[in-house]
Computed example of a mutant assay.
Amino acid sequence: MLELWKSIIIGIVEGLTEFLPVSSTGHMILAGHMIGFTGPKADTFEVVIQLGAILAVVVLYWRRLLRLFGIQDAATKAKPGPKMNLIHILIGILPAGLFGFLLHDYVKLLFMPETVLIGLVVGGIFMMVAEKIQPKVVAEDMDAITYKQSLFIGIAQLLSLWPGFSRSGSTIAAGMLAGTSRVAAADFTFIMAIPIMVGASGIDMLKNYKLLTSDDLLFFVVGFIVSFIVALLAVATFIKLVGKLKLTYFSYYRFALAAVMLIYIWMGL
C-alpha cells in the first residue's frame, strides 16, 4: 500500500493551489518530485484528487450553478440586466477543451519540474501585465460578462495547458484585460473550471484506471477527502479576499518558488 502521508501531502497541495493563480499542476509535480511520488499511478492519483477540489467549488457555488439551468430564486429574477448562462460557459471552455483533447498526450510530455519553472515565471509576468494595464472595468460581476469576454478568457485558458502557467491565473488575468473586475473573472473562472476539469479528469481516469488495485483504495480516498476539505477552505477564503489581493502578489510568490526549486534541482536534491 502506498504511504498515506504522501496522500495527505499531495491532497493538501492540490486543495490549496487548484483555484489559486499559482498552478496546482505545477505544485503537485514539484511536490511529487520532492517526496518521490512520481509515475503513472501518481498521475492517476492527482487526477482523482482534482475531483475533490472540483466538488468543493460545486458546494460553494451550488446556487449559482442551478441558475445556469434556469432554477432561480426571487432575488435573481428581480435583478435587472444580463445574466450569465450556459453559452458563456461553453464559449469559455471550448478552446482549451478542444486543444486539450487533441493534444492530451503531447501536453503530458511537458509534465516535468523544469517546464513547470518556466510556466511559473511566464505566467507570473502575464498576471503582472494584466494588473498593470487593466482597462476600464465594464463587468463588475460575472452576470455582466459578455460572450466576447468569455471567448477571450477561453482562448487565454489555452496557456494553462503548459504546466505551471495556472488555469486560474491565465483566466483571471485575461478577464481583467477584457474589462472584467478581478472578482467577476475569478467567479467565472471557478464555475468554468468544473466542466473542463471533469472532462480532463475523466479522460485520464479512463486511460489509467487499470493501474489501480484494491490496495490503493484507502490512499485515494484519503487524498480525495483532504483535497476537498482544503479546497473548500482555500476557495472560500480567496473569494473573500480576491477583490483586495492583486495578482502581482501571487506573481512574487511564483517567482520565489521558481527560484527555490531551480536551486533545489540544480543541487540535485
Results as ranks from 00 to 15, higher is better:
A231R: 03
A174E: 06
A31Y: 02
A174C: 07
A31H: 01
L68V: 04
G175L: 04
F152P: 00
E18M: 01
L51P: 06
V57Y: 01
S214E: 13
G15D: 05
I225P: 02
S170N: 04
M261Y: 14
K244S: 13
D204C: 00
K41Q: 13
L117C: 05
R167K: 11
I125C: 07
S214A: 15
A42F: 08
I118C: 05
L60M: 02
V260S: 10
F99M: 14
P163G: 08
I118G: 05
V242A: 10
L65N: 07
H33K: 14
A78N: 12
I225E: 01
A75K: 14
G32H: 03
G70Q: 06
G26Q: 07
A74L: 12
G169L: 02
P80G: 02
A234C: 12
P95H: 06
M205I: 15
Q72C: 13
F228Q: 05
L257K: 04
M192P: 00
R63M: 10
S227V: 07
Y61Q: 11
L66M: 15
F220L: 15
S251T: 15
T213V: 10
K41F: 04
G223Y: 04
V47N: 05
G179H: 06
V57W: 00
L232M: 12
S170Y: 03
E18K: 00
I9W: 11
L245W: 12
I155V: 15
P163I: 09
E3C: 00
L151W: 10
V116H: 08
G124I: 07
L20E: 00
A174Y: 04
V198T: 12
S7Q: 00
A185I: 08
F219K: 04
I9C: 09
L212V: 14
Q72Y: 09
V198K: 03
A178T: 09
P113G: 01
S251A: 15
